[in-house]
């Protein structure tokens, strides 16, 4: 459903993505792993449409990059993209106003389940609560492709668990979820496939259970093996 063709991104003299090719399938949860500066965030930013590749292209269910892909791609960035002046309620109506695939009923239920209240201001939320709000906003769209950049960063264990729950319950046969993270233990049991990025290229990719079987290693151990012997 997501097809990436020889994607390259250069900043000044630095090459962040190096002729990257990748095809992702529907109904799967992917873990996008790699050390800092391996190109994870840049890749997600390009697919979300906030950054342009230097060369190469991608398509989501056959649609070319642009407004058409933005309609079906839901992006959760690491930083806080929700305006600080807004209340939780404002965020809900904002998403409802702009995204045809946003499910306000589901979002409201989740807001309550997360212990958030519509009157709270974004600027008054703790990191944990903000993380919960961000995941609710991103996953309450019935998108085709979800891009989650470090969804567990800075979150307490309870918030992490709640974020995980929402990710799992949102996974559908016709949608794909990509989680970029370095907290591997957290996603070990929920991902189908793993993608290891290094210096802007895919160096290993596969079904996690198959990798466990053939290599007798956990994803975390595999990560160490892949990135240690440099």
């Amino acid at each position: 459903m997501l097809k990436i063709n020889s994607l390259t991104k250069k900043y000044f003299t630095r090459t962040v993505l190096d002729n990257l090719n990748l095809t992702l399938n529907e109904g799967k949860i992917y873990g996008l792993l790699g050390p800092n500066a391996s190109g994870k965030t840049t890749l997600l930013k390009i697919i979300a449409g906030v950054t342009q590749p230097t060369s190469g292209s991608f398509s989501v269910i056959g649609k070319k990059a642009g407004v058409d892909t933005k309609k079906i791609v839901s992006f959760l960035p690491t930083i806080n993209h929700l305006p600080r002046w807004m209340t939780v309620g404002n965020c809900l109506s904002y998403f409802q106003d702009f995204y045809a695939d946003f499910d306000p009923k589901l979002a409201k239920e989740r807001i309550t389940a997360m212990g958030l209240e519509p009157k709270q201001k974004v600027s008054s939320l703790s990191t944990g609560m903000l993380g919960r709000l961000k995941i609710v906003m991103a996953m309450s769209r019935h998108a085709k492709l979800y891009l989650l950049d470090e969804p567990f960063n800075g979150l307490d264990p309870i918030s992490r668990e709640k974020v995980l729950e929402i990710i799992l319950e949102s996974s559908q046969e016709d949608s794909t979820i990509v989680i970029a993270t370095h907290i591997i233990a957290e996603i070990e049991s929920i991902i189908d496939e793993v993608i290891f990025l290094k210096e802007g290229q895919v160096i290993l990719m596969g079904n996690v259970d198959d990798l466990r079987q053939t290599r007798q290693k956990s994803v975390e151990e595999l990560y160490r093996e892949v990135y240690d012997n440099v």
Binding site: S189, V208, R212, Q213, K217, S218, E221
Partner: peptide, 11 residues
Amino acid sequence: SFDPRIPIYLQ
């Protein structure tokens, strides 16, 4: 709880 070294489906 799972042992991350063994395929989860097998567990």
